[in-house]
């Protein structure tokens, strides 16, 4: 009945077709990204893109900071093969530990594990195995695109579309035999997207007590 009604009214036909087109097209940017903490907007202005791989070199805190806002908004996150990740730091950034899935030792099934985690978890923090062939990497990327999950790799990754690299890091608060670590200043080099051109430099101040 409804299809007959739809034929009779051109306006509703147009509307239905429009809806189908927009569902087949890639969605707009703001829907296509995970939110990030306000302080991280200096690094990634548009948030973390879905369905892609970021490789982060030189800082674990940076990965935690990028995941935090999405975790707070109810996204499930996963940690694969990073047995030394500091949980207190994760909780300090505001990551919801109740929705954090932890696989410390996938053995020789790294690829299948990361695949099945990507199916249900929105964000993954992983350490790459010693050897990843580019075929495996592109298969995984296709799977991530399909499930619209994002993977943050600590270290190098063969086909990462975006890279964040710590150029320099300095601390305040610690002297010669006195004080304690407090604020941290990071200088980052960010390259987002495969054909983004020259990397962008940005500075980040990480306060000792993070208030997300």
């Amino acid at each position: 009945m409804s299809s007959v009604a739809a034929f009779e009214s051109p306006a509703s036909v147009r509307q239905a077709l429009q809806a189908r087109i927009s569902s087949m097209q890639s969605t707009r940017l703001d829907e296509d990204a995970f939110p990030v903490l306000p302080m991280m907007r200096a690094v990634l202005g548009r948030g973390l893109r879905r369905g892609t791989v970021y490789s982060i070199t030189g800082s674990t805190s940076l990965a935690l900071a990028l995941v935090a806002a999405a975790s707070q908004s109810g996204e499930w996150c996963g940690v694969l093969d990073v047995p030394d990740l500091g949980l207190e730091a994760a909780a300090g950034w505001g990551i919801d530990l109740d929705r954090l899935v932890w696989v410390a030792d996938p053995g020789d099934r790294w690829m299948s594990t990361v695949g099945s985690m990507a199916d249900v978890l929105g964000l993954l923090i992983v350490r790459a195995p010693a050897r990843v062939t580019s075929a495996e990497a592109s298969r995984l990327l296709a799977r991530l695109r399909q499930t619209r999950s994002t993977m943050l790799v600590l270290g190098e990754w063969p086909q990462s579309e975006s890279q964040i690299r710590v150029v320099s890091s300095s601390w305040t608060g610690l002297g010669a035999g006195h004080g304690h670590l407090a604020d941290r200043h990071l200088e980052l080099e960010v390259r987002q997207g495969q054909n983004a051109g020259a990397p962008r430099r940005s500075r980040l101040r990480v306060p000792a007590a993070i208030s997300p």
Binding site: T60, L64, L85, G86, L87, A89, L181, A208
Partner: peptide
């Protein structure tokens, strides 16, 4: 220890 908490334990 005082904050910040270390990211790698």
């Amino acid at each position: 220890i005082p904050p910040p908490a270390p990211a790698t334990v």
